[in-house]
Design a protein around this nucleic acid. Structure first.
Length: 839
RNA sequence: GCGGGUGUGGCGGAAUGGUAGACGCCGGGGACUUAAAAUCCCCUGAUCCUUGAUCGUGUGGGUUCGAGUCCCACCGCCCGCACCA
């Protein structure tokens, strides 16, 4: 057998070709095996795979390969989330067409993925930017429209008044447009919405069935949906009108010291019509972007309308303010403000010198306790509140609601934080929304037989704004209803729509419809979905909604697309920088020679500062290029590194030393594989036990996606095998190691498998069987403690009785010395674990 | 600001309320070699009065025979906040 080094440069390509030739990873819909759909979030084709992708896809790949080895028919596909802004930016900056740029990127990235040896079914590849995909999306959109799940309404966008264009939140930097630098304004536009709010209850309920999703994701979605029970009631206003408000804290109604309305509330608008100060205040509120983070951190500002609101119980006169922190989208767009028990109201009251009454306290005795510089939103007992005094918060809520309901002045009401999903984008590179505006007939859907509405190729990116809107011919169409002249909708769909059903298209790709329901029924739900935590809310909620919407209109049966979810951490790297004239200049890892304590710039030999370990980004230059690394170490060492050390849900710090270590382990395993000898005999019971234990542990770890632990087990077995005497048990352990690492280091495993003279591809071999009888230990280590402190350890037969363990412990010399004549009060014995003497 | 995470040796991390630091990296010492690379072996939390003991899991409290793990308060960092994907 060869003693040469494992050479990934030749082996990787050879085995990738062998898998292709065997069609090893093509999913067979007609298979009788149990199915397993393993999916990683598909990438945006930015041009290069980054190391975060490598980590994501390596995890999915290990699981997919493992599932295949354990007898599953695996669907493990790959596609491209190919619409989006970067393609338009490239078009503006480099004068290339978004389509050409995107397709080139896809080709380059596909090559990179192949180079890593992922067990993907490339026959099902899709790209969302092709009419073969987005045409079906248009059909689905129309189906939702027919079901009444699509609406149009006004909503605010970030408007750049200089470039005369809509900006994405990301394009608003410190309240200014990223190109023009002009202060951004909020502007209302008629837009398309999907009625996700119709599914709020269902989406919330459904979380309960997703018990293998991370709790944190379910909690985030629950809070995002934000179901709250509250009270809607109306204030009588001094101008004779009534103002409905919504509150989730009716128990604090006696603490209301003012009323606040959103700047775009109808009442605010009517005040502004007669008062130019009010109008200019509202205009001031329109400044800045649309994000809630921005709204929440902005200074609280208000305008006193001069109108008074009559408190429903006390009759007190409360001033009505227009306030920038009140949202028109939530509740009624008007609130009763209780500064003592809401932080936003508190800040506002301080600024405008309004009363801050206390109506909730820890106890009745603290009814007049002053506030410590902030609102108290916690639980307690109601005080200073007439008939509510002494009640618990929850009881007081019910009491206020029932009183106002009895008087016919208000109603208990459930309100959701979740808003309808605005899917309109005023951009070119997206799925055209299949509608036509006709002056006579209104908004008319494009007939199915005219789909897809294809994006025009001849577009101009030299002017800001939507190229579809100023295209000379594309938007002119005849009305499908009356045949008269009409214009196409020039908004395109949010790219989150594209990613809300791609997993259905992976199940089957008929040309004449979005998917084959029978194939969807066969493959869905996805057994394991893997992606970044940054998608915890939006993408995952939208995909859940879209799936449920299609189920409601009878197109599919499945309601939850992802049976199990895993959110992996980022890949990070330390940064290298120098201060240069007050500016920080960053250097890339390959410009640096790294020593134990310091880092030097290769170009001039001078020292650079080693900065914090942060997410890899172009701006900090702390990226590593997968191609370079794979070329140097081979795919397997890189894959192994991606799985080692860090728990997959946490960040993984990239390091040269780490990848070097993985490279050494690849070679170490290769040497060990070379020692396989099918002909030897001789037993080694301890090694055999260890082998079975490792197989069981690795299987358990891989199924739990605890790859770092699986890796540690493999290291342990490797060391044990190296130390073991030659014999049949050792050879069998070596053969087993090849199977254990096959999902992780498939090229090395194939090469070894062949060298050992085994049949077929290791990728298609069966996972080694475990003899559970060999998993049980007959001896265990018992910790001996005195007052919880370790004094000695002893070995005892597994399952020894409590009395036996206690006797063994009390006879132990070290423990006796520690107790040293003190009175033994109690002895705690945990069988197979420890004995703790309390003395 | 709001919501959700996270914090353990020089580093990444392991540990059903029960022996803290498995496994890997770095570092130190040794073997092999003309030499280097590669490889192999040993050591490697801190402190001290070093056959042993004390301290030690972001900080401060608490519950428990026993806390990295449970509870309360705080601090740092990370993710999301609806037009980045």
């Amino acid at each position: 057998m060869t003693t040469e080094r494992f050479d990934p440069a030749s082996a990787d390509m050879r085995w990738q070709a062998a898998w292709d030739a065997a069609g090893a990873f093509v999913a067979d819909s007609n298979s009788a095996k149990p199915k397993s759909f393993v999916l990683e979030m598909f990438p945006y084709p930015s041009g290069r795979i980054h190391i975060g992708h490598v980590r994501n896809y390596t995890m999915g790949d290990v699981l997919a390969r493992y599932k295949r080895m354990t007898g599953h028919e695996v669907l493990h596909p790959m596609g491209w989330d190919a619409f989006g802004m970067p393609a338009e930016n490239a078009a503006m900056e480099k004068g290339v067409h978004p389509g050409g740029w995107t397709r080139d990127n896809i080709e380059a990235m596909k090559k990179q993925l192949k180079r890593l040896g992922f067990a993907l079914d490339w026959s099902r590849e899709l790209a969302t930017c092709e009419p073969e995909y987005y045409g079906h999306e248009q059909a689905l959109f129309l189906a939702l429209y027919e079901a009444g799940l699509v609406t149009r309404k006004e909503s605010e966008v970030n408007w750049d008044p200089v470039d005369m264009t809509v900006l994405a939140n990301e394009q608003v930097i410190d309240g200014r447009g990223w190109r023009s630098g002009a202060p951004v304004e909020r502007r209302k536009l008629a837009q398309w919405f999907l009625k996700i709010t119709d599914f709020a209850d269902e989406l919330l309920e459904g979380l309960g069935t997703l018990d293998t999703w991370p709790d944190k994701v379910r909690l985030m979605q629950e809070n995002w949906i934000g179901k709250s029970q509250g009270l809607e009631f109306s204030f009588d206003l001094s101008n004779g009108e009534r103002l409905p408000v919504y509150t989730t804290r009716p128990d604090t109604i006696f603490g209301a010291s003012f009323v606040a309305i959103a700047p775009d509330h109808p009442l605010a608008q009517s005040v502004a019509a007669q008062n130019c100060d009010a109008a200019s205040f509202i205009a001031l509120c329109k400044r800045g972007g649309t994000t809630t983070a921005e709204m929440d951190t902005a200074e609280k500002l208000g305008f006193d309308t001069g109108i008074g609101a009559r408190h429903p119980f006390t009759g007190a006169h409360l001033p009505v303010f227009i306030a920038n922190f009140v949202l028109m989208d939530y509740g009624t767009g008007a609130i009763m403000a209780v500064p003592g028990h809401d932080q936003r109201d508190f800040e506002f009251a301080i600024k405008y010198g309004l009363a801050i009454p206390r109506v909730v306290a820890a106890s009745a005795a603290e009814a007049d306790k002053p506030f410590a510089g902030e609102a108290e939103s916690g639980d307690g007992v109601v005080v200073n509140s007439d008939f509510l005094d002494g009640m618990a918060v929850e009881d007081a809520k019910r009491e206020v609601i029932s009183r106002l309901e009895a008087e016919g002045r208000g109603t208990g009401k459930t309100v959701w934080r979740l808003r309808d999903w605005g899917v309109s984008r005023q951009r070119y590179w997206g799925t055209p929304i299949p509608f036509i505006h006709c002056d006579g007939c209104g908004m008319v859907p494009v007939p199915r037989d005219q789909l897809p509405v294809v994006l025009p190729e001849d577009v101009d990116f030299q002017t800001p704004g939507n190229p579809l809107d100023r295209h000379p011919t594309w938007k002119h169409a005849s009305c499908p209803s009356c045949g008269g002249g009409a214009v196409r909708e020039t908004d395109t769909l949010d790219t989150f729509v594209d990613s809300s059903w791609y997993f259905l298209r992976f199940a089957s790709q008929p040309a004449d419809r979005p998917f084959d329901p029978a194939e969807v029924a066969k493959w869905l739900p996805v057994e394991q979905y893997i992606g970044g935590i940054e998608h915890a809310i939006l993408h995952l909620l939208y995909a859940r909604f879209w799936t449920r919407a299609l189920a409601r209109i009878g197109m599919i049966e499945v309601k939850e697309p992802f049976a199990s979810l895993f959110t992996q951490g980022m890949v990070t790297h330390e940064t290298y920088s120098r201060e240069d004239g007050g500016r920080t200049v960053y250097y890339a890892p390959d410009e640096i020679s790294r020593e134990a304590e310091r880092a030097l710039l290769t170009a001039d030999g001078g020292a650079v500062e080693i900065g914090r370990v942060v997410k890899m980004s172009k701006s900090k230059k702390n990226t590593v290029d997968p191609d370079t690394i794979v070329a140097r170490y081979g795919a397997d060492a890189v894959r192994w590194f991606m799985l080692s050390d860090s728990p997959p849900e946490r960040d993984l710090p990239w390091s040269e030393a780490g990848i070097e270590g993985c490279w050494r382990f690849v070679q170490r395993l290769w040497r060990l594989f070379g020692q396989y000898d099918a002909g030897t005999t001789g037993e080694d019971q301890a090694l055999t036990r260890r082998r079975h234990r490792t197989v069981a542990a690795v299987a358990q770890d891989v199924e739990a996606l605890a790859f770092n632990k699986a890796v540690a087990r493999i290291y342990e077995l490797t060391s044990a095998v190296e130390k073991a005497a030659p014999g049949a048990a050792r050879s069998e352990a070596i053969r087993t190691l090849a199977l254990l690492v096959a999902p992780m280091m498939p090229h090395l495993a194939e090469e070894a498998w062949k060298a050992m003279g085994q049949e077929g591809l290791v990728s298609q071999a069966a996972w080694p069987a475990v003899d559970t009888a060999l998993l049980v230990e007959d001896e265990v280590t018992i910790a001996l403690q005195h007052m919880g402190k370790l004094r000695d350890t002893i070995t005892a037969p597994k399952g020894a009785s409590k009395d036996d363990l206690e006797a063994l412990a009390l006879a132990n010399e070290k423990l006796q010395r520690s107790i040293a004549g003190a009175q033994v009060k109690k002895v705690i014995v945990v069988p197979d674990r420890l004995v703790n003497v309390v003395a």
